[in-house]
Computed example of a mutant assay.
Amino acid sequence: MSLHPTISSAKVEGTAVYDLAGDKLGAIDDLVIDKRTGHVRYAALEFGGFLGVGTDRYPLPWDMLKYDTSKDGYVVNLDRDLLTTAPRYAKEAAPAYTEDYGRSVYTHYGFNWQ
């Protein structure tokens, strides 16, 4: 059992995200929280571009990410090819996180929208 089961969103933002092979995909840019339940719905993965220019945000269902203490980062069962067709947005153009949008994100990754 972890001694610290909670974490500040400020510490999650910037944390690296790796695929199952251990390759870095990007980093967490933002968290999206359900106002009614208080649960994190998405982690916005910053991916693509060069030196932060032209990078897009890819909302990933929070339950998709598993923290790996040996990597000091999150691991996802995801390959880069799936990201090419994933819902995404530019940092300045965050979407309205509606129920329909949520369903499209969760469905893309094979998760059920609750």
Rank of each mutant, 00 (worst) to 15 (best):
V12M: 10
L3Y: 14
G73N: 12
P95N: 01
V76C: 11
G14Q: 06
D72W: 06
Q114D: 14
E99H: 09
E46V: 00
V12D: 02
R80Y: 07
I28V: 15
G26I: 04
I7P: 09
R80T: 14
K24H: 00
V17G: 04
R88L: 00
G14E: 12
G14N: 14
D81N: 05
F47P: 04
L65P: 14
P87A: 06
A96V: 14
R88K: 11
Y97P: 00
A44P: 03
P59M: 03
D68T: 09
D23M: 00
G52T: 03
K35D: 15
D34S: 15
H108P: 13
L78E: 10
P61G: 07
R88W: 02
V53R: 06
T15R: 07
Y101K: 01
D79T: 13
A93S: 08
K66L: 10
D100L: 09
T69Q: 14
L3G: 15
A43V: 09
A94Q: 10
V53H: 08
K71Y: 02
G26W: 06
K24V: 06
L83C: 04
S8G: 13
D34N: 15
T85G: 05
L65Q: 11
L60D: 09
M1P: 15
K11Q: 10
Y67I: 10
Y101R: 01
T107L: 08
A16M: 11
A86L: 05
V105Y: 00
G110D: 10
N112E: 09
L83Y: 03
Y58W: 02
D19K: 07
R80V: 15
A94I: 09
A96H: 08
L83W: 04
D81V: 07
L20S: 15
Y89T: 03
T55F: 00
K35P: 14
L45E: 01
Y97D: 01
T37I: 12
T107G: 03
T84L: 02
L83H: 11
V32H: 13
